[in-house]
């Protein structure tokens, strides 16, 4: 089976004012993979996610998704192209009900009947959301909000799902549940590009991973190509610079 590249980022530079958070990042995400991005705080992982989703405008470089350049496009255009981001801290719509959150996720779509059946599918995948369907999203627990954020992103039927630290601030049991959901989604055909602090869990599910430090990609490989304790050391602490 030949794999094809779904997302190709080349020499991407994004800056906050004069400070460059990404200093020329290049990486690829293959179709059908779970690709993981590891690295210490401040390495630029979230900046890369936000640049890809169109929240931040890159200064230079290209982001090619399924053949078209999406760098610098508005977020809703990128959603329409088939990329959905589950943002850091989830950012559900707190005063809207669980169902309305999912409807908002399907905003680019017009197929009302299909949207309804997709919501039903989400409820099957996330049974706890069904129990809370009419509840305001702000009243959900952290784990439930994370599931809702994933469901909302899936409602746009993305070809590529970006996830920014889905395990952040969640209890270990919930983290395990989130990761089993990630594997399930991937088995059902979704390509997933994941930023994680939890290197141990991430390496378990990833088919490929990148290490990022100080705005640059410093390592790329398959899990097993680098000893896990070395990955973890570099993911948390960064490598000693010569």
């Amino acid at each position: 089976m030949t794999t094809s590249v779904l997302l190709e980022i080349q020499d991407l530079v994004t800056s906050y004012g004069k400070i460059e958070a990404l200093k020329g990042v290049s990486l690829t995400v293959e179709e059908g993979s779970i690709t993981c991005l590891l690295g210490p705080n401040g390495a630029g992982k979230t900046t890369l996610m936000m640049s890809t989703a169109g929240i931040l405008e890159p200064r230079r470089g290209s982001i090619r998704f399924a053949g078209q350049d999406i760098a610098g496009k508005a977020p809703h255009t990128i959603v329409a192209a088939g990329v959905a981001l589950v943002p850091e801290n989830r950012l559900v719509f707190p005063r809207m009900s669980v169902i309305e959150n999912m409807q908002a996720g399907a905003y680019q779509r017009n197929d009302t009947a299909e949207i309804a059946s997709d919501i039903e599918r989400m409820f099957t995948r996330f049974p706890r959301l069904r129990e809370r369907s009419a509840q305001e999203a702000g009243t959900l627990s952290g784990g439930e909000q994370q599931m809702l954020a994933v469901a909302r992103a899936l409602m746009s039927r993305p070809k590529l799902l970006l996830m920014d630290e889905p395990s952040l601030g969640l209890a270990p049991l919930i983290v395990a549940e989130i990761f089993s959901i990630i594997t399930e989604l991937n088995k059902d055909g979704a390509t997933i590009f994941l930023v994680e602090q939890n290197a141990h869990m991430a390496l378990k599910v990833a088919s490929h991973f990148y290490l990022m430090e100080q705005g640059r990609v410093t390592f790329s490989g398959d899990p097993g190509s680098l000893a896990e304790d070395e990955v973890i050391k570099r993911a948390y602490l960064g490598s000693a610079r010569p």
Binding site: L85, L91, F93, M96, Y107, R152, S156
Partner: peptide
Amino acid sequence: GLAVRAVIDEPGAAGLSGINVS
């Protein structure tokens, strides 16, 4: 109305949901 409430509630996530905020 759904789009308006989404923008009021969490402008950062509205665009990510495919809503054209401007």
